[in-house]
Nucleic acid binder design. Sequence first.
DNA 1: TTGAGCGCTGCTTAAAATGCAGCGTTCATC
DNA 2: GATGAACGCTGCATTTTAAGCAGCGCTCAA
Lengths: 302, 302
Amino acid sequence: MRHLTLLQHVVEVARSGSIRKAAERLNITSSALNRRVQDLEEELGTPLFERRARGVSLTTAGEMFVSTAQHHLSEMDRFRSQIEELRGLRRGVVRIACSQALAQDFLATQIAAFQNDRPKVAFELKVTDHETALAALRDYEVDLALVFHAVIGTGIAVTARMPQRLAAIMRADHPLAAQRTVRLAECASYPVALPDRTLGSRQLIDQVASRQELRFQVAAESGSFEMLRGLVMRGNAISFQIEIGAPPRDVHSDVVARQIDDRDLPQADLSLCQLRGRSLSVAAALFIERLAQAMQVARKVP
Amino acid sequence: MRHLTLLQHVVEVARSGSIRKAAERLNITSSALNRRVQDLEEELGTPLFERRARGVSLTTAGEMFVSTAQHHLSEMDRFRSQIEELRGLRRGVVRIACSQALAQDFLATQIAAFQNDRPKVAFELKVTDHETALAALRDYEVDLALVFHAVIGTGIAVTARMPQRLAAIMRADHPLAAQRTVRLAECASYPVALPDRTLGSRQLIDQVASRQELRFQVAAESGSFEMLRGLVMRGNAISFQIEIGAPPRDVHSDVVARQIDDRDLPQADLSLCQLRGRSLSVAAALFIERLAQAMQVARKVP
DNA sequence: TTGAGCGCTGCTTAAAATGCAGCGTTCATC
DNA sequence: GATGAACGCTGCATTTTAAGCAGCGCTCAA
């Protein structure tokens, strides 16, 4: 879209915080970009950026402009998507931000099922902690975010919600593996490998642990679920994961999941989030619809 | 806005139904406009207009584009308005479509009061029948519409509503002027000057008349309230107007208004309408707010 | 059958955006 | 306190883009 470049350029300057950096990203010279910004500011009769020694930052007017521009760019994306739908191409990109726990099993299944119907739809997955995920949603970087136990502000709408319990994961030969459910206090008797503090499951654990005055023997702490699983397998530690990311019995390894006793757990939700007021591409809207449905269904089956 | 011209151009072509006509309105040559359209179509990979012998008409994709474009143009208008507000200029334009009944008294008062606070805000008034008024609202030609007894479809939101009775207006020396209220049947004994069928008040009268099987002595029929008032004054006819457009005693003439008996009247509303999903300029939003308030207050006082 | 009105295109000309090189400034670093 | 990297900005030459002009072929009402 030729007439959208100006908007994209300004948004990029805002993102980069520097005209030169933005120009590099956009593959134009900084002088060209600089003049585009200046022309726009002159036309509007008001500066959009404050010039600082190490770059630029948005003025109030600039923030308003960027917000409008982002919205319009998103609308145009959606328009193009509808055009393609009209032409029967059924293409599209769905961009998702989610926490690690979901990526491996739940989302992979959902995406595969969706692509069965619409093979030309591509997916972009961004795996992060929930704060970054919601920020990406706010910045129009992703179409939807799937977050666990997050504080969701206004501006973001929760399309579906799914209560999630925490599961303890351990090796099949771990003493606690004999039980159907475990209590958190029991886990304290063994070495544990905890998710780090950016992750929702850890925040949940900390909450419970401090209430029950539990002290874990923390063998390790990591932001990576692969790492934690590795520690479980090779170090015989206990780790924790939300149930949707922890199938009761993993066929590919000797790791098992054991539900934690209900009495120990506060309520925590897995939330499917969209940006309020934003219309999505056909592909993204369809996928969200199915995902929401899958979450409802999964909720019914305990 | 330099980068908005393309959108404006396409919208204008859609409005005009012809590239040449649109080009004339836009003060450019038809070849230039033609090529802009073609370039855009090529870029989108889909035609926006169907070429017909006597001009062009929108394709489905074209309709979608125009709708998005209009929305974005309106957003940018709003953005500029907010900029000016930020700079303390407090300027702006409020564009209104309303029926004649309201223009003379009610709206004039409201506008004058508003301009007392914000003298730099200009008003554009479009006086028409209610269908045209709602169409203008839908086409982003006006910011708000004030219509009486209209069928309001989805896509248009009613911000405030005010039940309105009909009043009979007549010369002070008319026999019926002696009464505080009149019945519609009584009016049938005298010559009447009726609003024409485009006007909401006429539709209301027709409704009642047909139910009560009344036959009026129709002395005249007109779409102009000035004309009707003239006939009342000079021909001693009775005419009708909604109460908000008919002050009980007009100091500038010998015309008086007498309320019609409640038993004769079906419910009819004066509605303040906005386009759903559209954000308005600061001035327009403020004016609407006050107008809505005024309508609530007016409703309280019977 | 004719002519007015339409969309479209080749060519020329005017305008706008871009790249290049370089200026003055700020600020972390040594 | 000197230094250099990073930044925004500007004059000028160049390229790219858009606009205007004239004219073609087409359709359809008169």
